[in-house]
Write a protein that binds this DNA or RNA. Structure first.
Lengths: 151, 151
DNA sequence: TATTGTTATACTCTATAACTATA
DNA sequence: TATAGTTATAGAGTATAACAATA
């Protein structure tokens, strides 16, 4: 990820400044960098956070189900769960009725670390919107949800 | 890029639906897919569009200067210009006073194709914000520019 | 036959290091 | 010494194909 040094003001061409797609990309990149920096000390990446959150909300789930919710390919999911299992945050057990699939469960350590992770991610989110007022932040959330068809 | 099929509603976890960073990532991904689809028939990717636009606004520029504006690494820029040159849209000439650097110029064909490319990208942008009213679209642009520190 | 998880593999994107030619 | 461009290379990230076990 190429990070423009602070000294470089980077004069963005006008045609790009007028494009929602370009600005979304730029903003998303800023957000990704902040979350990456926030999670790095914990040895996690954004997709691990997604899995921990999904497990908390959905309860024990198959790798396939997690992949559907988080848009992660099943082959990518293998390595993602491997990593979380190695850190002791999740646990694979055979599914009781369907022995093809694993049941991925959060461990107590996983539930505990999620609290820390949530704070780190919330701080990154806060930093991302630091230039906006409270009213603008909630406006932006609404607009993005609507754009994504999530409401 | 994993694209969720239309049949899959993908119930996004609440904690993620409340995160600006997550929503920005999701929205940016949608935008990137639309632009990618729009440019594919022309044999171009988003970064080629960026170069053509920058050349139009800045005039003939060194590869280094283009990279600074577009946040593209100089090693990546080589292949990007190679591709545009192969298509006949730009032309490398030695810089008159500094023989270390190339002057990258748009050719007539490059200027012509940029008109088509602009239309394709504008249509993708329009599709991206299709769920928003005119007022909401301009609000979103303002909020994103402010978030990115571009105004 | 279809699905879940897994491995091996390949492809894209991007960055680092080393080289050249200039400054 | 420093910079612009280039090449070779390596590291992510993610996808496809093939396989085993199970439905």
């Amino acid at each position: 990820m190429l990070r423009t040094p602070a000294e470089t003001p980077a004069p963005v061409p006008d045609a790009l400044r007028r494009s929602t797609g370009f600005l979304l990309g730029k903003a998303a990149q800023l957000g990704a960098e902040l979350v990456e920096d926030a999670l790095q000390p914990l040895g996690l990446k954004a997709r691990h956070y997604g899995v921990l959150v999904a497990l908390q909300e959905l309860g024990p789930s198959s790798q396939h189900a997690l992949g559907q919710v988080l848009r992660i390919d099943r082959t990518t999911m293998v390595a993602t769960i491997d990593h979380l299992e190695k850190l002791g945050y999740v646990h694979r057990t055979p599914h009781p009725s369907d022995r093809r699939s694993n049941q991925v469960k959060s461990t107590p350590a996983g539930t505990a670390v999620l609290k820390t992770v949530r704070k780190a991610v919330a701080a990154a989110d806060e930093a991302l919107v630091s230039r906006l007022s409270a009213r603008q932040r909630s406006q932006l959330l609404d607009l993005l949800r609507q754009l994504c068809g999530l409401q």
